[in-house]
Write a protein that binds this DNA or RNA. Sequence first.
DNA 1: TATTGTTATACTCTATAACTATA
DNA 2: TATAGTTATAGAGTATAACAATA
Lengths: 141, 141
Amino acid sequence: MVKAALRQGALPDLLGYRLRLAQQAAFRDFAASVQGLSPGRIGLLILIDANPGVTQSRLAEAVRRDRSTMVGVIDLLEGRGLVERRRGDDRRTNGLWLTRAGHMLLARALRRIAEHERRIASRLSPAERRRLLELLGKISP
Amino acid sequence: MVKAALRQGALPDLLGYRLRLAQQAAFRDFAASVQGLSPGRIGLLILIDANPGVTQSRLAEAVRRDRSTMVGVIDLLEGRGLVERRRGDDRRTNGLWLTRAGHMLLARALRRIAEHERRIASRLSPAERRRLLELLGKISP
DNA sequence: TATTGTTATACTCTATAACTATA
DNA sequence: TATAGTTATAGAGTATAACAATA
């Protein structure tokens, strides 16, 4: 039995709603995880890789999370042997580095992410994809 | 003290990441709530308004949530006197309707949402806004 | 047998407040 | 005094499995 779709009311014209739909669609395509890690966790690996020695607080700030939230996340990544904490010169801080295993996992993840990116952009021409990134940049610079 | 921004690595070129940033920026502007309800909850009011008598299961399906998830959400909306459950002709089902208070709250919410929409689109021309909605539609039809 | 709403339960992600060790 | 990391705790939001009522 085919069910008629629900009427959408005012929703289809709202940017916030359409951004959420698109983000959820992208998240689903990510298969919820790559190498057993969520998009957010992979994002942290990318940031640590690009900023070796970054502190937990600076990393939390970069992704707009409380520093207490970062503790458990780094515990997890460290528990999997992907990230290493090293006490900083300022001995209140932990600097973060990818381990060798972290680098290897990230390299594999980036290849999976490239495939994912091709899938979600598969209905866009290269010019449309660039245009979409540009317009998104105007909303969240 | 000014801190240099973190290097972003491969993230800025990933649609999934940029969609998430834009969606989070829009969510923050929503001030987390309008009339004390989250964007998702307001969305449900809009859907019920556009589909009076819709069942809980069909509503859950429309927003891609489990029907067990919908129970608590409808409990909340009903507890605030915004939504009414009525037993359907198929007596396994609950049909959902907005109450008078629900209609009034939704009308106020829609005005707040229109202001919100203007703010998040304030850096886009009308043509750019249309183009963004169009491109988002290609990602999540 | 299948579906709807419901309950019990658990998991993920997040924040707040208070603590400690350092600065 | 102020900051970095940590802990304890709590609150959203979500899902899975099992159940009763109904089809």
